[in-house]
Amino acid sequence: MYLFIDAGNTRIKYAGHDGADWLFHDAVPSDASAPLKLPAGFAPQRILVVSVADAICNAFIEAQLASWAECIEWFRSTPERCGLRNGYEEPTQLGADRWAGAIAAWQHVKGACLVVAAGTATTIDVITADGVFAGGCIAPGLEMMRRALARGTAALPLAAGHFEALPRNTADAIFSGCLNAQLGSIARMRGRLPDDAPVLLTGGAAPALRDGIDGNVVELPRLVLEGLLWTARSEQGA
Rank of each mutant, 00 (worst) to 15 (best):
C57M: 08
R168Q: 13
F175K: 04
N86D: 10
L201F: 13
V115R: 05
L179W: 15
L193K: 13
A7W: 00
S30W: 15
P44N: 07
A15I: 13
A205Q: 14
K110V: 05
G136W: 11
R151S: 12
H17G: 04
P29W: 03
S234V: 09
D26F: 01
G95F: 09
A69H: 07
T170N: 05
D214H: 11
W106A: 10
G8Y: 12
A208V: 08
G111T: 13
Y14N: 00
P198G: 02
W99N: 01
L65Y: 00
G95L: 04
G119L: 06
F163Y: 15
L209V: 14
G16A: 05
N58P: 05
P35C: 01
P157H: 13
A27Q: 15
A150Q: 11
G227D: 02
H162F: 08
I5Y: 04
G95D: 04
R151D: 13
A34I: 09
L179A: 08
F75G: 00
V115Y: 08
A197C: 09
M145N: 11
P29D: 10
E219T: 14
S67H: 06
A53I: 11
I47R: 07
A27N: 13
A187D: 08
V126W: 03
G119F: 06
L223C: 04
T231S: 07
C137P: 04
A150K: 12
A100Q: 06
C137G: 15
Q45T: 15
V218L: 14
D211N: 09
A171I: 09
L209D: 10
G141S: 04
R11G: 01
I12G: 02
W230P: 02
T170F: 15
A159S: 13
G215D: 08
A139R: 14
T10K: 03
F133E: 10
P79Q: 03
G191C: 05
V218Y: 04
V224G: 06
G131R: 06
W22K: 02
A63H: 11
Y14K: 00
E80H: 12
A59Y: 07
K37E: 06
W106H: 14
A40S: 15
T128F: 10
A165H: 14
D130L: 06
A197S: 11
M144T: 15
L209R: 09
A15N: 05
F75T: 00
L149D: 06
G203L: 05
P157V: 14
M144D: 03
I5K: 12
R222A: 08
A55T: 15
G203R: 10
L225C: 05
I213C: 03
I56K: 11
A238H: 07
K37N: 04
L223W: 11
A43E: 14
A40R: 15
G111W: 02
Q45C: 08
N180R: 10
